[in-house]
Design a protein around this nucleic acid. Structure first.
Length: 588
RNA sequence: GCGCCCAUAGCUCAACCGGACAGAGCAACGGCCUUCUAAGCCGUGGGUUGCAGGUUCGAGUCCUGCUGGGCGCGCCA
């Protein structure tokens, strides 16, 4: 319908240009908007206002001319000029109601499209270090990334979801050392746990199960472990030096093989936990990409060679640098340290190169807001590697600031004081958590009061939407149980939709017509919150309708028409909810 | 100090490419269950869109400068 109207407008525009009212070279972007107010019709165009200046007439005069030049169309019942010069289009009832039949026929496919034309696209999100369980901060990125991926899939992109596993580097060694020290405690050794080690309970849990399995096999006397180790911070030393020395000591005492086993034990246990956690949160991935694999496969070296042969690196102070400032970054970035070890950023460059070589038309990074500083350097690397910058997209997810009532909850993985995603799910449920996370724009700061989410979970808007869905199911059950009312006759219902003329029903037809556009817009803007808002409005329209009008009317034609409309609403609610990972219950 | 993000009703937030009277929910107040689920509906009150300029037919939206908040600025990961 929208396309039809745009064509009509273009024809009118062309005619006015031929008549000389508008210059031949005037090519405004034709805009057709859904109106907010039904009094303004179904669609509105601002073409006359845009043209007023070049036409040297006032907007309403131009609008008059456009309307006169507009070809007639059977489904356009009225065209009005309103306000400062809007052209309002009124669409025929049959054009609005036919959507119901389309929805019932297409089912779960309604709203989906092939605008993405099957192009390969990657969405990388969460990618939290596997050094501990996911916390509520990761939850927002998980819910957002999964929803964006679902949206892009729905508009026809070939989506690959990926989690970048930071399984290399110092943090993982700190985890391994933490695990070993906890294991030693489980063996009965007495020691002071380092201030900079991972203190979470989960480390002790893994350590105890390790001890239960292997006994004292990896045990060393506490005195030997801490012999000549530099002092920890509480003792006036340097906590970083302290933990690094303990890592080195673990490697020496255990030997490479045993150290690796403990390292892998920690990594695998946590990774498995994260995978299960996300899966229960209805967040799944096609790929779990190992950072470690980049160095073992030689990808890092290859990427560095590419940068160097392109003339984008230089040696300074014994280290290898990337001249990212040549591409607008604040400062150049170190790739290989003076001790010969490549930096985390070198892995990032190799990973980026690897991604872009995998044939994705577009690669989307979903970052926590604290990573915004990475964008310029990754964009610099993208260009230096010879890739098209347009293939790279970034979205930042602001933190959810946690409160327990009035008190702000401080979050720190290292200290072990955080609210886990799992706790949140147990508290408020997956549906409410998924919905709550994406109902706000991702770049908007969000306050998340745990007490409120828990104590007032019944007031969570997600139930409002689910309830609308359940209500339709309930009406159907009622019909089936009825001995007096005839069974649903879809054909008859569809044939009498235009008999539904209340404001409530018109609002619903209109809302249902919007859905495909909302989905498209939300997908290309990476904004799942638009789906959440739309569903809230659709549910609201339905609840209003439900309270005002009896669906199970005595008149079979009216009843079947209303049932068809209700079924269409239910279908669209279910389609939208599935995009944001929320279930559509049949009863509540 | 430099950079990125943000500021809308008492609170949490919407507002499609710059459009019509800035909208919801919560909180407050008043109504609606012998009738398809009251996790619902209807009604009332609530605003100088942080401040000051600018761009234009038109600005919450774009530009500049301020104020206030978040985050980032390692040969850490």
């Amino acid at each position: 319908m929208k396309d039809t109207l745009l064509t009509l407008l273009q024809q009118a525009l062309t005619q006015l240009q031929q008549e000389g009212m508008l210059p031949e070279d005037f090519q405004p972007q034709l805009v057709l908007e859904r109106t907010r107010d039904p009094a303004h019709g179904d669609f509105a165009s601002n073409l006359a206002m845009l043209s007023a200046k070049v036409a040297k007439r006032n907007p309403r005069e131009v609008a008059q001319a456009i309307v006169q030049a507009l070809p007639a169309h059977p489904q356009v019942t009225k065209v009005e000029i309103a306000g400062p010069g809007f052209i309002n289009f009124f669409i025929s009832d049959s054009a609005l109601t036919e959507v119901v039949g389309r929805i019932l026929q297409q089912g779960a496919a309604f709203g989906r499209s092939d605008l993405g034309a099957g192009q390969k696209m990657q969405v990388e999100f969460v990618s939290a270090n596997p050094t501990g369980p996911l916390h509520v901060g990761h939850g927002r990125g998980a819910a957002y990334g999964a929803s964006v991926a679902a949206l892009l899939d729905a508009v026809g992109f070939d989506i690959e979801r990926e989690y970048y596993v930071n399984d290399a580097g110092r943090q993982m060694n700190i985890l391994a050392a933490s695990l070993w020290l906890r294991y030693l405690q489980a063996c009965g050794e007495t020691l002071v746990f380092p201030s900079n080690a991972y203190k979470g309970d989960y480390v002790q849990t893994y350590a105890q199960s390790l001890h239960a399995r292997v006994g004292d096999q990896y045990r060393h006397a506490s005195a030997a472990v801490f012999k000549e180790i530099p002092a920890d911070e509480p003792q006036g030393g340097d906590k970083e030096a302290h933990i690094d020395a303990l890592i080195a000591r673990a490697q020496t005492l255990l030997g490479a093989e045993a150290y690796q086993e403990i390292f892998n034990l920690g990594l695998n246990a946590i990774l498995q936990d994260i995978q299960q956690d996300l899966s229960e949160f209805r967040v799944t991935y096609e790929n779990w990409f190992s950072e470690l694999s980049l160095s073992t496969s030689g990808a890092i070296q290859t990427a560095l060679d590419k940068l160097t042969s392109g003339g984008h690196t230089y040696q300074a102070e014994g280290a290898l640098w990337f001249r990212s400032t040549a591409f607008g970054d604040d400062k150049d970035r170190c790739l290989v340290r003076d001790n010969g070890i490549s930096t985390y950023f070198a892995s990032d460059v190799a990973y980026l190169d690897h991604k872009l070589q995998r044939g994705f038309a577009k690669v989307l990074y979903v970052f926590g807001a604290d990573h915004h500083g990475y964008i310029p350097r990754l964009q610099a690397a993208c260009q230096a590697l010879g890739h098209d910058l347009a293939r790279l997209d970034f979205r930042l997810v602001q933190f959810a600031i946690l409160y327990r009532g009035q008190e702000r909850v401080q979050m720190s993985t290292r200290s072990g004081s955080f609210v886990t995603l799992r706790e949140l799910r147990d508290d408020v449920g997956t549906d409410a958590a998924r919905y709550y996370y994406v109902m706000r724009k991702a770049d908007q700061h969000m306050d998340f009061d745990l007490e409120l989410a828990k104590s007032q979970s019944k007031d969570n808007p997600v139930y409002y939407i689910q309830y609308a869905h359940a209500r339709v199911c309930s009406v159907l059950r009622k019909l089936e149980a009825s001995e007096r009312l005839s069974a649903l006759d879809t054909q008859q219902g569809l044939a009498h939709l235009t008999a539904l003329e209340s404001e409530y029903e018109k609002n619903l037809f209109s809302a249902l017509n919007h859905y495909p556009e909302v989905l498209t817009r939300a997908a290309f803007a990476y904004e799942p919150h638009q789906i959440a808002n739309y569903l809230q409005e659709l549910a609201s329209d339905f609840h209003t309708y439900y309270n005002a009008v009896k669906v199970l009317d005595e008149d079979a034609q009216v009843r079947n028409a209303r049932l068809c409309l209700s079924l269409a609403v239910r279908q669209v609610l279910a389609n939208g909810l599935s995009l944001i990972g929320v279930e559509a219950p049949e009863e509540m």
